[in-house]
Each structure stands twice: as C-alpha cells, then as structure tokens.
Design a protein around this nucleic acid. Structure first.
Lengths: 253, 253
DNA sequence: GAGTGGTCTAGACCACGGG
DNA sequence: CCGTGGTCTAGACCACTCC
C-alpha cells in the first residue's frame, strides 16, 4: 500500500514529540521567543513531564532550544561557526586570535597531558588558561600546556602567575618556528570549572578539541579546549565557515 | 579551613555517582567487562534506577560505557581516532579511502543542501550514500551530494542507481581538479535511518561533519557525514591522530 | 514569593537478545 | 523463556531568577 509506514514499529513518544516540537519551532516560533513552561507543555501533549523533558533535551542537544533554570525555555539562534583550524598555522596568542588569557601557573601536568606533550612525567609545564568569547557569549575554555623547556628565555620574567604571565608565555611562543599542528575533536561533558566558565551546568555536552603544536622537531605545546556543543559549530579549512541552516536534522533527502 | 569544599553547594547525586563509577571503571574494570545490571547497581548505591541511569548516560556520552538493550552494559574501549581531514586534500572515493559506496540516486536535494552547494534550488544532484567501517564496526554514514553539472560525462553510464552508479560518480569526480575543501563539525542526533546504519538508537549523539569540495571555482560536491560520537575521535591535520587517554574528563590539572 | 527548570523517587510496562 | 536496557508515569522537592 502507499500509505505511510504502519506503526508495526511504533516510535517512542519522546521521539515523536521531538519531531512535532521541531516542526512547531520552524513554523510558529522565532529566535529568542520563550516557550510555555514544561508543565503546561506536558499537559498540552498529554504526557508526563519527564517524557516532555526527554524531547526538550534532544532539541537542546541539537542546538534548537536553550533552557535556563529560573527563567524558561527559549528558541536558540543558529549555531555560530567558530574557526578552530586554519591553513596558515599560527601559534596560540598570535595577533588577532579570539582568545583571552586568564591565568597561568607552572606545575607538573596530569599524565594524560604529559603523554600528549611527550614530556617526561615529572617535567614542569606552563599551564595557561584562556577563554574565548564570541558575540558577547563565552564559547570555549582552554588549557594550553607549554613545557618550560619550550620557552627557556622566560626565566627572567617577574610575574609568577596571572594573566600577565600568560601573555609572557604566549609572547615567547611566537619566537619559535611553528612546523605544524594537528587536532582532534571528540564529545565530552563539561567539568564543574569549565561548566561555570561556559555558563552551563556540569555535565553539559562539549566538543573537546585537542591540538598539538610542533616546533623544533618535537611537540612544543598542546591545547585542550572545550567548546559549548549546543551553540558552536567548529570549522576547519580555508574559508572558516560553511553556511548551513540551523538544523542538523534536516540534512537528508 | 583546609578541609575539602564544604557542601554548601551539594552536587547532584547523579553527578557524584558518575564520578564514583568513573573511578571504579579505571581501577576495577577492564575493557569489555560487563557491569552489574541497572537494578542491582541502583540498589547497591541506594538510588532510584532513573538516577543511576542518568549517571550511566553521562558515562556513555563520554565514551566510557556501551549499553545494549537485551544484553547489558559493558566497559567501552578507548575511542578510535578517525581521520576526517588531511593536508593533502583528496576527492571522496580516492584510492585508499575508508568509505564504501552503498547506493546512489539522482534527485533535487533539500534546500539546506542546495544552499551548501550553491546550486539553484531545482538543480538535480547525485546523492551517494556511503558507509565507513573501522575495526569491523560501523562508525559513520555519509550522504555525498554531487550536482549533475559537476560530472557531465556521466550521462552515458547505464547503471541508473545502486552501488555501481555510486562508484561511477566517484570515478568521474577524480577527473576534476580539487582546489580546496573545508569542513565543519557539530553535535547532532542520529535520524532513524542513520541510527540503524550505525547500530544505535534514534537520537543517539553523533558528530556531523559537513564538508565542501571546491573545483572549477565553485562548490563541486558536498558531504554530510554523521559519526558515532560515543566511539569516535575525529582527527584533523598532518599526522592523523593525537594519542591521548580514553578520558576527556581527566584532562586538567 | 511566585514561577521556572533541575533532580529524584518508586513504581510499571515494553522491546530486544540470547539461551 | 528470562534478563537486559528503554520508555513512561505521577508525583515530590530543590535551586535559581526575577519581581
């Protein structure tokens, strides 16, 4: 028969709800508009609040909605394209990059970081904390690890820590000859400190970008940056952005 | 005082549970081992099953666990590095790429795709479906869009659709001179068809990679690939992989 | 204080996989 | 068939924001 798919395999309520709400968002709501509260919505659709919330979580994960405790649920703007890789490689801190140094300490890094840097487990590294803002919103938090041996001329600097120290480390990095870099992207969940900086709750989905910077035939620095997964689309390549519609769902024929 | 943080801001139970389980996974379990079932675990920790499930969902999102209905919950292996960008750009279908053509149709694409391709809304495009396997597991499903005008010499081919047609389209692509490409990565949720191909449930988190291929001064093809977010770490750059530990959580000092 | 989303409970039933 | 994880319910209370 030419009828629509028989529900021999009925889809879950929350999935169907997600679809219905998604279409409603397209046709009946505009960016920034606030939705009815969860209790009302659940009643309107005749489901438990938990079920409705499952649908809302999906839509939030897809960047369609934004929910804030004490405030409400609003229609999210399209994800912003955020450039994280470029053809012309550049050191972190190069003039014009979007990051803002926050702090800097010197310590022995976690073993996972030492593995990335390929340093001895006890070697000290500068740990630079930076944050990235776009359109007034925090979009990423980064920890940049620079082995002390990568920036040997830094010893005479007076600032022992803080943003000034961070800038000094970044400045020293510029003097090295960057030979290459590579990155990896994976899904993670925000730790408490990152969550706070990103204005999200702990456990919020983030895209973790791990980047190694090569100079002098070795790994001279490494960066671990966590981007808000709900608001960011990470772009790699020549142009710095693929213009697409807001909905990663409506992408097939 | 030097005591640990007072719980003036008590963390949620599920978040604490997540931490406890995460540490247990590190110390007391090995890859592939099956955990006790959810009802037992919930009872053991003195929480409701829903709360325990919230913790397990977090760990699954982070790639630490794998859950399968009717089977159980197992400890997941470290995420596999999957190369999605390379310095030496290459057309999809170049010898040695990891994709396997599945099918091919010709149709007018959704408007979102037409926007990416910068084609007229009514222009026909070849839609090549491909899948990518690694270590015997499906890791990605792709839709590759090639405007018919990009491969004009294809008209004489007999196969109207199917894998043979897909290979023919890919072969024609190789004849063009690839001038560049760029990609974007964002979080999405698997549609029903992708979910099936990826052996996951609908709504499972995926990393959506949108790539544009440039040739002849225009966008000659576009690819929308959905990768399993639980099992994949997408790598960009020269080497094709940053060797890191399995835990995106244990990444700070 | 009123209203919002976030957490948590204690159940029930369903869909799936394997013996 | 049984045991597993997946879905769903109808409540309760908490944390937060704004007025």
């Amino acid at each position: 028969m030419g009828t629509t798919q028989l529900d021999t395999v009925p889809e879950p309520k929350y999935w169907h709800l997600r679809t219905v709400l998604s279409e409603a968002l397209d046709s009946e709501f505009s960016v920034g508009e606030i939705l009815p509260n969860e209790r009302d919505l659940a009643a309107r659709f005749g489901v438990a609040r938990a079920t409705l919330r499952q649908a809302l979580e999906q839509l939030e994960l897809e960047g369609r909605l934004q929910r804030r405790r004490g405030v409400g649920t609003t229609v999210a703007p399209p994800r912003m394209g955020v450039a994280v890789g470029s053809e012309q490689h550049a050191w972190p801190g190069a003039t014009g990059d979007a990051w803002q140094p926050v702090d800097c300490t010197v310590a022995v890094p976690p073993t996972a970081v030492a593995d990335i840097l390929e340093t001895a487990p006890e070697e000290q590294v500068h740990t630079v904390r930076r944050s990235r803002m776009t359109h007034g919103q925090p979009v990423a938090a980064e920890l940049l690890y620079v082995p002390v041996s990568s920036v040997p001329d830094l010893s005479a600097i007076d600032a022992p820590s803080g943003a000034a120290r961070a800038r000094a480390v970044l400045r020293e990095l510029q003097r090295l000859d960057l030979e290459g870099q590579d990155s990896a992207v994976e899904l993670g969940s925000a730790r408490a400190d990152d969550a706070k900086e990103l204005d999200r709750l702990p456990g919020a989905p983030v895209l973790v970008v791990t980047t190694r910077f090569y100079a002098g035939g070795r790994t001279a620095a490494a960066s671990i940056a966590t981007y808000r997964a709900d608001t960011c689309r990470l772009t790699f390549g020549d142009t710095g952005g693929v213009e697409i519609h807001h909905d990663p769902e409506r992408r097939a024929s």
